[in-house]
């Protein structure tokens, strides 16, 4: 069952005497139950708008938006107790302490002080919990925002750039926290521009560009689908190797210390045969590594090109 189901979601922001901004342009997305789902996209691609529509903070211009089986625009109150969320930098009451902020929100859903203390401990804010929020750093505010999202012990977590403002240690902690939450069977829907984080944390990913989903699925599948299928070839004499490959009808590209061959890994045998035929021996032959970043740039860059 999908915990988030977006169909043809469109959101336009009207402007005075100017054409409207199309933030979401018929977005279709399905987020399955359980695990960590990464929501990737460049700035202005519509990630935060999507999250706002999910949480009924923004009204879609068209399309359907279902969360935990209900229409988020009309029936969100039925399921809000099972959804923890953080939208951008969390809005907190600066005059109150972190603990007080959590306690007052928790009371709305009947959550007591024990749960507040536990969640503060979990995000590493227990020691500063009784300081006013106005004295918190950006990273501490971000942690408190995550604590607010976790306080309901939610089935679905919707987090918008949770690693923003965190130091490397904090980013690592959040990564482990998200993985742990996903492993517990919860669904974590996390938007991020930190591609390496998504690659390390998420089971599935969707890539958003110009308000549309341009790729979605398990991280490995997206990598495989979006990335190139080349081979990395390393040998002693790169120039001679390149000439041997060309003679065999195989195109290659000379890089700093290796050759890039535009053949799928299944055809690696053609490379070894052509080189051995010329008395050249390999020191390394492997499929080219594809990073999510490369796929992301390829997918979103291509889309930018179309738009222009």
């Amino acid at each position: 069952m999908a915990v988030i189901e977006l169909t043809g979601l469109r959101k336009e922001y009207q402007r005075f005497r100017r054409p409207p901004i199309v933030a979401l342009d018929g977005l279709d997305l399905s987020v399955p139950d359980g695990g960590v789902f990464g929501f990737l996209g460049p700035n202005g691609s519509g990630k935060t708008t999507t999250i706002r529509c999910l949480l009924a903070l923004a009204r879609p211009t068209a399309g359907d938006c279902r969360v935990l089986g209900v229409d988020s625009q009309t029936a969100l109150p039925e399921v809000i107790g099972r959804i923890g969320s953080m939208v951008e930098t969390p809005g907190l009451f600066p005059a109150m302490t972190g603990r007080r902020n959590l306690a007052l929100l928790g009371r709305i859903q009947g959550i007591g002080p024990a749960a507040v203390a536990a969640v503060l401990e979990r995000v590493g804010l227990a020691e500063r919990a009784d300081d006013p929020v106005r004295n918190y750093s950006l990273g501490m505010r971000q942690r408190l925002g995550i604590a607010i999202a976790l306080l309901k012990d939610p089935q679905l977590l919707v987090l918008d750039e949770p690693a923003n403002g965190l130091d490397p240690a904090g980013i690592k902690e959040v990564r482990e926290l998200l993985r742990g939450l996903g492993a517990e069977g919860r669904t974590v829907f996390v938007s991020s521009h930190l591609l390496s984080e998504v690659q390390q944390t998420c089971d599935r990913v969707a890539v958003l560009a110009r308000g549309k989903c341009v790729a979605a699925g398990p991280v490995d599948d997206v990598l495989a689908a979006g990335g190139s299928h080349g081979l990395v070839v390393r040998l002693g004499d790169l120039q001679a190797g390149r000439a041997a490959l060309a003679e065999a009808g195989i195109e290659s590209l000379l890089e700093a210390d290796h050759l890039r061959v535009a053949l799928p890994p299944a055809e690696a045998e053609r490379v070894t045969r052509a080189l051995v035929h010329k008395g050249l021996y390999l020191t390394e032959l492997r499929p080219e590594e594809v990073s999510l970043e490369a796929v992301f740039l390829e997918l979103t860059g291509e889309h930018h090109g179309e738009a222009q």
Binding site: L55, L57, P77, S85, V87, G91, L92, P94, I108, I148
Partner: peptide
């Protein structure tokens, strides 16, 4: 200004 209204609405959407 402080966007606390957003935070409250994620707990009580009515």
């Amino acid at each position: 200004q402080s966007r606390t209204i957003t935070t409250v609405l994620t707990w009580e959407p009515r």
